[in-house]
Computed example of a mutant assay.
Amino acid sequence: MTHTPSPLAVVVTGASSGLGRETALDLEDRGFRVVAGVRRVEDGEKLVAESLHGRVVPRLVDVTDDGSVAACARFCEEELGGLWGLVNNAGICVSAPLECVDSERMRQQLETNVVGQLAMIRAHLPLLRRSRGRVVNVTSGLGRVAVPYMGAYSAAQFAKEAMSDALRREVAPSGVRVSVVQPGAIRTPIWDKVSNVGAEALRGAPPEVAALYRITFERFLEGNARQAARSRTTPEDFARAVARALTDANPRTRYRVGSDARLVNAMSRTLPDRLLDRYFAGILTP
């Protein structure tokens, strides 16, 4: 016998801003009760004020803190009576030449985007198994193709893709369904953070190393920002894909959001490494 809370409860991590915020509000509007994982009390208060139906419940969730993760799962069981879905959206993006990514920054990238996501999955799977619910892991097109100057981020996204595939196969016998949502470039506050983190990484590298990359890396960051600004893909498009992963009777293993995400997937499947290297060579030319 399955246990399904009413209304259906969903945890969305990284809900303070951007895609996570849009997803939390969209799911609430669709009738879900949304546990919105935020890092600051004021972010949760703002989200509640923006909600229309009083079904957004903010929780302070740090995916890199096991105690915080466990507390979220306890809240879902004790206060909500169960859980239907977990949307692993929280993440950071370290964009820098790999030679400029120090060990601490790389650990932070992997701890947040991979280790923390697995912690959330482990803590909430017992509830999802009872409801035969859903896990939705958010990656990106960079989980399929590794772009120069995004190596740390791509490493985390590749790992999350692999983790999602293994998890999907492991939990299928218990009725839990696992999907990946792969958004392309979408204009959100993350792009300002990407530029700031990249600048910090270059400042922390030896001057002679930073000098090797500075011109092409800064041009790369500017190009990324322009691409996001021009993108016709919206946060609403992303939120709809997440909703489909949570509600489709037979959810896809992957939902790609935006023409660029679909293009990257096609490139990864059809182009040999040498052609991809040639395609990205322009990024590295001063």
Rank of each mutant, 00 (worst) to 15 (best):
P5E: 05
L8C: 13
L8W: 11
A9H: 11
V10K: 07
V11H: 09
V11Y: 10
S16G: 15
G18A: 09
E28I: 01
V56Y: 02
V57F: 07
L60F: 09
V61W: 07
D62L: 04
V63C: 11
V63L: 13
D66G: 06
S68K: 06
C76M: 10
E77T: 10
E79I: 08
L83V: 09
G85P: 01
S95P: 07
A96P: 05
D102Y: 12
R107S: 10
L110D: 03
L118G: 03
A119I: 00
L127V: 09
G133R: 05
R134G: 04
T139M: 00
L142D: 13
G143D: 06
V145M: 14
M150S: 15
K160S: 13
M163V: 11
M163S: 01
A166H: 01
R168F: 01
R168W: 01
R169C: 11
P173T: 00
V176R: 01
V176N: 00
V180E: 08
G198D: 09
G198P: 04
G204K: 09
P206L: 06
P206R: 03
P207K: 13
R219L: 10
R226M: 12
R226L: 14
A229H: 13
T233P: 02
R240C: 08
A241L: 03
A243R: 09
P251V: 08
R252K: 15
R252D: 13
T253Y: 14
R254M: 03
Y255C: 10
R262I: 05
V264I: 15
R274M: 10
L275E: 11
D277Y: 12
Y279H: 12
F280P: 03
G282H: 04
L284P: 08
P286H: 09
